[in-house]
Design a binder for these strands. Structure first.
Lengths: 182, 182
DNA sequence: GTGATAAGATACGGCATCGTTTCTTGAAGG
DNA sequence: CCTTCAAGAAACGATGCCGTATCTTATCAC
């Protein structure tokens, strides 16, 4: 489908040249179409990108097994790293990087893409175990629920690549579980 | 001094328009000088920005008191949040955001600005206490030494502002100290 | 006072993108 | 077969940045 090709081209172009250099001309080139076609449908590159992200494959949701906290946490964070390797994630990070310069775009991104998709990765797991009494609910603070994601992001920045399964396991063992009192 | 004004203008312009839109023309406008002056000294906007960052005020170094681990960790992270509020930090984040698109620039940034400045914030403190035997040295892994910084960055992203002293203290109490076995 | 140097202003041709307009091509539906 | 509508191609004037060249002005050293 034409629209699908344009969506993919928009995200790929965004990742390649960055939000600051993103233009209809470049997207049209990459999609092998004419920019007339783009202007007929979208008023700006920002709207086009938001549309592309809204149509992108949704993120998988962790399904806790309820009897192995450590494995469920690792699985949730591996889901996160898997998503981080998708083109959509690269596009999202290119947008979030420019939060200061385009606050409206970031806000629209949350409203149209993220908010309709519930909670974050480890939070889903942690709430599940807290409901079962296997984790002290008082330990679930705005800090502790972010440890896993925070370290995944930090390692991704420092290493220049997304953490692998062993590194994710180390995050769970060395940082997350201790903070839960385990 | 003229060069100083140009350096400040370069960083301010970078933060305002982003690395993708950064141009000599804009920097010259902001510094109230002529393009000619810039081209006489610097070959590209990237070199100019690197120069500006190398000249920027260096980051303060934590000085552990050696008898209060918690207070020293909080102080180290507060130093980090203080630095994050400087124009230089905003410029650095604008550059790191485009790591994928300008790897050479990021590499030069590390080589010319960061590497000459030793270790990170909490690491300095943690190594100090490990040397004194007050912290189990085996607990100092590539993961645990990054917990503080990782959560400061994550909170900064999620909140859209740099964490305050109470939030930093919560990071230390709820995540960092437990991971150290305390 | 004179000479040297850099700041600063202006203009240049070249080029790319902007958003729009016009026209051609092509495929589907009746 | 023929009509219709969107895709696609090409060109438009406008704008702005590129990097350079030219010329004037201001500030020093001597």
């Amino acid at each position: 489908m034409l629209v699908r090709a344009i969506h993919e081209a928009a995200l790929a172009e965004l990742v390649d040249v960055g939000l600051g250099q993103l233009g209809m001309e470049g997207i049209a080139r990459r999609a092998s179409t004419a920019k007339t076609v783009l202007y007929r449908r979208w008023a700006s590159t920002h709207e086009l990108v938001l549309d592309a992200l809204a149509q992108a494959h949704p993120v998988e949701v962790p399904t806790p097994a309820a009897n192995d906290l450590r494995a469920d946490l690792v699985a949730a964070l591996v889901l996160l790293t898997d998503w981080m390797r998708t083109p959509a994630a690269a596009a999202v990070s290119a947008i979030l990087a420019e939060r200061e310069r385009h606050p409206g775009l970031v806000e629209a991104l949350y409203r149209r893409v993220f908010d309709p998709r519930g909670a974050t990765f480890t939070t889903t797991v942690l709430r599940h175990y807290a409901d079962n009494g296997r984790v002290d609910a008082r330990r679930l603070t705005p800090i502790t629920t972010q440890i896993g994601e925070a370290l995944v992001f930090k390692l991704a920045i420092d290493l220049g690549r997304t953490p692998n399964a062993e590194e994710v396991a180390a995050i769970v063992d060395e940082a997350l579980l201790p903070a839960l009192g385990i």
